[in-house]
Amino acid sequence: MTGRHTLSWFALKQEVEDFLYMEADLLDQRMFWEWLDLLAEDIVYFMPIRRNVKFGQHAEKENTKQGEGISWFDEDKWTLGKRVEQILTGVHYAEEPLSRVTHMVSNVRLLEVSPSPEEATNVVVGSRFLVYQNRVEYETNTFVGRRIDTLRRNGDSWLIARRELILEQNVLLAKNLSILF
């Protein structure tokens, strides 16, 4: 969706951006339950494993697929809730002491808006993430990638109905994915 847009389209884009920044902030402020409240009950939270494939096979084979086989994440709200619960036990040693995390979100674009910018109830939004994690003393990980979110109107705010995280790594260079994206 590029080209000339109406004011209401820009207003929607701004609203969506604000939502994504607020959401990122909840994670960075470790307000995990509040973050969970932003997820739709039927959320699909998916991070494929990326593979080195021959030219021409990318569409078909580069990423593992949602709904089959093994990915880094292919989860629902229950599992994400368990992740939050686990962190909050205080004895999940991979996150105890808690990591310091900053989520950067950029390149925000509205990819699909329905039914209209004025009355949008469903928005597909593309963005880039750069997530910086530092834990204990020296352990640092940087996760960079693309994100495609489907947002569903929820009163004055939104619910995340689908999140696809395309991490730009093959062999995972971090020992753990113990943080939320």
Binding site: W72, F73, K82, Q86, H92, Y93, A94, L172, K175
Partner: peptide, 12 residues
């Protein structure tokens, strides 16, 4: 690495 059980192994 994304597994809730084995993350703790990795930390150790």
């Amino acid at each position: 690495p994304a597994g809730m059980t084995e993350q703790d192994d990795m930390e150790n």
